[in-house]
Design a protein around this nucleic acid. Structure first.
Length: 244
DNA sequence: AACCAGGACGTGA
DNA sequence: TCACGTCATGGT
């Protein structure tokens, strides 16, 4: 039905992109965690918190909270900077919710300074910490997450996908840019429309969703960060569209 | 030395 | 709804 005789269905194109990314870059091992080598992930390639092909994380509430903090800290910032903030929080023993909520606001904002927006993010993190504590181990709904000030669509989906293994697709700036530049979606597509595209065309597999988003980021950093990134040559290197 | 990073919120049309 | 300014730090 939605299968064209040339095989270039939307689902087919998305699968091609996924496979091409996976061939090029390999499994990404997201979400990075500070301490994830105490397990069976002694498989090769475990660098600075990434755990390729090991989908067993997070393994406790402490790691769930770390992912939530990371999701907020990396908003409009590089992971390098967000990670510095996380390391500071960890050194100060503040990556457990209880300790975090006992700390002074100024202590938090000082620790997260490298991630930028220290005042905003301090408030956002506190909101998330109170929310996470009240969850008491339960998985939140997307609506409840979005009601937390500081948690927008991408952060909510990141938390659901990586901290709770809910197969919800994360749409980030690179994903949107990639699809628009390759003319796979109209320019004014909304977050929800792009999210729906993936979720309607792909099987709801949290592992695939985790890898796909991470791969989009890896690919985007290589091809679509510094302008100009619009040339046909770049688009060709970026992704060879299957012939219709 | 501008420009950009794994966005979200508040405001005014 | 939607476009725009604001929030802050570090690397290129």
């Amino acid at each position: 039905m939605n299968q064209s005789i040339h095989g270039a269905t939307k689902a087919g194109i998305l699968r091609d992109i996924y496979e091409q990314f996976l061939d090029r870059y390999g499994p990404q091992g997201w979400w990075p965690l500070i301490d994830c080598e105490g397990t069976n992930s002694l498989k090769k390639g475990v660098i600075k918190g990434y755990h390729p092909l090991d989908y067993s994380f997070p393994q406790n509430g402490r790691q769930q909270f770390e992912i939530i903090c990371g999701a907020v800290l990396t908003q409009n910032t590089t992971w390098v900077n967000a990670n510095k903030a996380l390391q500071n929080l960890n050194s100060a023993n503040l990556l457990s919710v209880k300790n975090f909520l006992l700390a002074r606001d100024k202590t938090i904002s000082k620790a997260i300074k490298p991630a930028g927006y220290k005042n905003q993010k301090q408030e956002y993190l506190k909101n998330c910490a109170m929310f996470f504590l009240k969850l008491n181990g339960r998985t939140p709904t997307r609506e409840k997450l979005l009601a937390v000030k500081g948690v927008g669509p991408e952060t909510a989906d990141s938390i659901l996908l990586y901290a709770y293994k809910v197969p919800t697709f994360v749409v980030d700036a690179y994903t949107t840019r990639f699809l628009i530049l390759h003319k796979l979606i109209p320019e004014k597509s909304s977050y929800h429309q792009i999210k729906a595209l993936f979720e309607n065309e792909l099987k709801k597999d949290f592992k695939v969703y985790q890898e796909f988003h991470a791969l989009f980021v890896e690919h985007g950093k290589r091809f679509f960060s510094k302008k100009p990134y619009k040339g046909d040559d770049i688009l060709l290197k970026s992704f060879n569209k299957p012939v219709n």
